[in-house]
Simulated assay, not measured.
Amino acid sequence: MCRWAAYIGEPVHLSEVISHPEHSLIDQSLHATQSVTPTNADGVGLAWYGARPTPGVFRDILPAWSDRNLKSVAEHVSSGLFLGHIRASSGAPTSRENCHPFTADNWSFVHNGEVGGFSDFRRHANALIPDDLYHHREGTTDSEAMFLIALHEGLADDPKTALERAAGQLEAMSRAHGSAPHLHM
Score class of each variant (00 low, 15 high):
M1S: 15
C2K: 02
C2Y: 04
A6Y: 12
Y7N: 08
Y7P: 07
I8S: 12
I8A: 14
G9I: 13
G9Y: 12
E10H: 14
V12W: 05
L14E: 05
L14D: 07
S15G: 05
S19F: 12
S19Q: 15
S19D: 15
H20V: 14
H20T: 14
P21C: 13
P21F: 06
S24V: 12
S24Q: 07
L25D: 12
Q28E: 14
S29D: 03
H31T: 10
H31I: 05
H31K: 12
A32K: 06
S35G: 06
S35W: 03
V36C: 00
P38K: 12
P38T: 14
D42I: 10
V44K: 10
L46H: 10
W48R: 03
Y49G: 08
G50V: 01
G50I: 04
P53I: 09
P55M: 03
G56C: 10
F58R: 02
F58I: 08
R59E: 05
P63L: 08
P63R: 09
R68V: 14
K71P: 01
E75C: 06
E75G: 08
H76I: 06
H76M: 13
S78K: 11
S78T: 07
S79P: 04
G80A: 13
G80K: 06
G80L: 06
L81F: 13
L83K: 03
G84F: 02
H85D: 11
H85M: 13
H85S: 08
I86H: 02
S89R: 01
S90Y: 01
S90H: 02
G91D: 05
A92V: 02
P93I: 09
T94I: 13
T94C: 04
S95L: 02
R96H: 01
N98F: 03
P101A: 06
T103W: 00
T103L: 00
F109V: 08
V110Q: 01
N112P: 06
N112S: 08
G113C: 08
S119V: 01
D120K: 12
R122F: 02
H124P: 00
A127P: 00
A127S: 14
A127Y: 04
I129V: 15
I129P: 04
P130V: 05
P130R: 11
D131I: 07
D132A: 06
D132R: 12
Y134R: 15
H135D: 10
H136M: 02
R137N: 06
G139H: 03
T140M: 01
T141A: 05
S143M: 11
A145K: 01
F147T: 11
F147V: 11
F147E: 12
L148W: 09
I149Y: 09
A150Y: 08
L151P: 03
G154M: 12
L155V: 11
A156I: 08
A156R: 15
D157L: 15
P159N: 09
A162H: 10
A162G: 11
A167N: 11
G168R: 09
Q169F: 07
M173P: 04
M173L: 15
S174Q: 04
S174M: 06
R175W: 02
A176C: 02
A176Q: 13
H177R: 09
H177I: 01
G178Y: 06
A180G: 00
H182T: 14
L183A: 03
